[in-house]
Design a binder for these strands. Structure first.
Length: 126
DNA sequence: ATCCTGACCCAAG
DNA sequence: GCTTGGGCCAGGA
């Protein structure tokens, strides 16, 4: 049995927030990613205020269609997670925005979007 | 309630 | 680089 982190314990204790409210927050986070930049599913979830909800980010993007800049959300490390033609379309869309790839992944060092945080340099969050 | 699935993630091997 | 197991969450059967 693995030891649970404090966050995991908290996650089990509190009731999951209403999904609609969460979806609104996630959509907002996705819209914040500018052209030429990308963010990971996990990044978007955390930026929306719901760490651990990366799977729901994907679920929502699928449902949202083209109402969001879905191509700017990629897997950890810059991997394209869509299969076949859909994956090709995402890559093409990103390249049109000036995003460059290293092999089959986005060059994250150059194109990763940094979401705004409340964290201060001298008071880092735990 | 249980089982399965998915545009996930990550530590191991 | 890679595959895999375990962890994660919601929605549908």
């Amino acid at each position: 049995m693995r030891k649970l982190t404090h966050r995991e314990v908290a996650r089990r204790l509190i009731r999951a927030p209403k999904s609609e409210q969460r979806d609104v927050a996630i959509r907002k986070a996705v819209r914040q990613i500018p052209r030429g930049k990308v963010a990971t599913y996990g990044q978007v979830a955390a930026a929306a205020g719901y760490p651990l909800f990366h799977r729901q980010v994907a679920q929502l993007l699928r449902k949202a269609g083209n109402s969001l800049p879905w191509q700017r959300v990629v897997g950890a490390g810059g991997a394209i997670k869509l299969k076949y033609e859909a994956g090709l379309e995402q890559r093409t869309r990103l390249e049109l925005e000036g995003v460059r790839f290293r092999g089959r992944r986005v060059d994250m060092a150059e194109h990763r979007h940094r979401f705004r945080t409340w964290e201060f340099d001298d008071h880092p969050l735990p």
